[in-house]
Design a protein around this nucleic acid. Structure first.
Length: 454
RNA sequence: GUGGUUGUAGCUCAGUUGGUUAGAGCGCCUGGUUGUGGUCCAGGAGGUCGUCGGUUCGAACCCGAUCUUCCACCCCA
């Protein structure tokens, strides 16, 4: 060992310390509880999928960001020898949870009750350059219902989003649009074949002025007439902040276009049901400039942004896909889902000091270790204390008291029990409150009731 | 994938006409307190200056490559 390897996690990945994990679990648990209240059931899928399962589902950009797993052993040697690059990798880490879910549904269709509601909280991997709030490994919390095209599912998604962010104390705006409107828009301006570049360009409108976006489209070969038409529509979309007014406006624009009329009808349905049912803290807004990159979406699309001054990325997104299972041999399964970005929600909550206090699951009581016989006495007590639901531990070594007390202090353990010769003789313990510094002698049978009172 | 940026002790950071043994605060360890932490006092450990290579009599400092960090683009949770 000549050189010391300096330890670090791979680029864009992180370790999580205990307090961070506890806070992350708070987010996961909140989301999970809401999902379960709506009848969603948990599933898990492998970290890796066959490369074929993933490629072609996320668009050109997405394919590039798939984390591929290099072939090993003979296969690798053979592929290298043949210069056959396509065989260099057969597997890849999952890029999201939706496509693996589609694969899952097709594979297990006979074991599932449709419409099938599942939720899934697992890490996904993307091979892009990390920056703030953006990692190569991050967790997604997805809920999807597949096997129905009922718009009530969209309504429930809005409700779930509202429930989760209300519980988390994070006021949000839920932006909603419909891919059918984007299809209609492309047709309306006479560029029906350029739907994808159009959606990508429109998606930039919240970051870029309209003229720049139009200039982008000019480069993509959009006609001058298309650009003028787009400008009119998108300006209206930008200036009409009232969703109802914007829908009325789009009604005029898309009159006679089947996709446009259908999209608006869907939107109006969701809005009217949400209005009747009511939202706690969230705002729902129709946003024509919401497009979303993933090109499997066909109906409603959602994105959630915090209602704060800072400009941050979306913390949740989703939409309806009509035929994601089709490529796996099961056509006609419509589904709709939502995905929460736990890492970004974490960053948001941390910035606003929004985690609950006293939510730690740390040790409540530490027994100081004075030696073998004293430790035996404490160890016996621990059984009933733990059964009573108190988180307690015995310091494993008979180290110096100062060291043991410091350990309790560092771990923010609220109570320390000291049992030496005197206490053992009196069949009791000295209980010290680490916050006040007070301590008292307590009979061992009263210890549990005493602790429960405090 | 493109452009830029960062990297010195466990952490946050000082450290230029390149020149002897590289510093601070916090943290850590030991003692003051043989059964008492968080405060205080005294002492101590810890760095081949991200890595590799080059320029130079001499490099933390200049140059190149590479890795990492952060930022913009692309895209996205």
């Amino acid at each position: 060992m000549s050189k010391q390897y300096k330890p670090s996690t791979p680029k864009g990945t992180r370790d999580f310390l205990p307090t961070v994990v506890q806070r992350r679990n708070y987010i996961f648990d909140t989301i999970k509880t809401v999902f379960e209240h709506y009848g969603y059931q948990p599933i898990e899928t492998p970290a890796m999928e066959n490369l074929e399962t993933l490629t072609g589902k996320y668009g050109e950009e997405g394919d590039r960001l798939i984390f591929k797993i290099l072939a090993r052993g003979e296969k690798l040697n053979k592929a290298l020898a043949d210069f056959n690059q396509t065989n260099l990798t057969e597997e890849a880490l999952r890029y999201d949870l939706t496509v693996p879910f589609a694969r899952f549904v097709v594979q297990h269709q006979n074991d599932l009750a449709f419409p099938f509601r599942r939720y899934q909280i697992q890490p996904v991997w993307r091979a892009d350059r990390p920056q703030k709030g953006r990692y190569r490994e991050f967790f997604q919390c997805d809920a999807d219902v597949i096997g129905t095209d009922s718009l009530r599912c969209e309504v429930e998604i809005v409700q779930m989003l509202d429930n989760v962010f209300t519980k988390l104390g994070l006021p949000v705006e839920i932006k909603i649009n419909n891919r059918k409107l984007l299809t209609a828009l492309a047709a309306y301006v006479g560029e029906a074949d350029k739907l994808i570049p159009l959606t990508i360009a429109i998606d930039k409108l919240d970051k870029m002025p309209l003229d720049k976006v139009l200039a982008d489209l000019d480069n993509q070969g959009f006609s001058a007439e298309a650009q003028t038409k787009l400008k009119t529509v998108l300006e209206a979309a930008r200036d009409l902040t009232d969703s109802a007014a914007l829908m009325d406006k789009m009604e005029q624009v898309f009159a006679g276009n089947a996709d446009g009329e259908k999209g608006l009808e869907e939107l109006r349905y969701v809005f009217s049901k949400v209005k009747t049912l009511g939202l706690e803290t969230s705002k729902l807004r129709f946003d024509m400039s919401l497009a979303r990159g993933l090109n499997y979406y066909t109906g409603a699309i959602f994105e959630v942004v915090p209602r704060t001054d800072e400009q941050v990325g979306s913390i949740s997104g989703g939409g309806r896909y009509d035929d994601l299972t089709g490529v796996f041999g099961m056509p006609g399964m419509s589904g709709v889902g939502i995905s929460f970005g736990a890492d970004r929600i974490y960053d948001m909550l941390e910035a606003r000091d929004g985690f609950p206090k006293n939510e730690t699951a740390g040790t409540e009581l530490l027994f100081v270790n004075f030696g073998e016989t004293e430790a035996d006495f404490c160890h016996e007590l621990l059984g009933s204390i733990r059964k009573a639901g108190i988180r307690a531990e015995l310091y494993p070594d008979a180290s110096k008291m100062k060291k043991q007390m410091k350990y309790a202090n560092d771990k923010q353990i609220k109570f320390v029990a000291m049992v030496g010769e005197d206490e053992m003789a009196a069949d009791s313990v000295t209980l010290k409150n680490m916050e006040s510094g007070e301590q008292e002698l307590i009979g061992k049978n009263e210890l549990i009731s005493k602790l429960k009172m405090l």
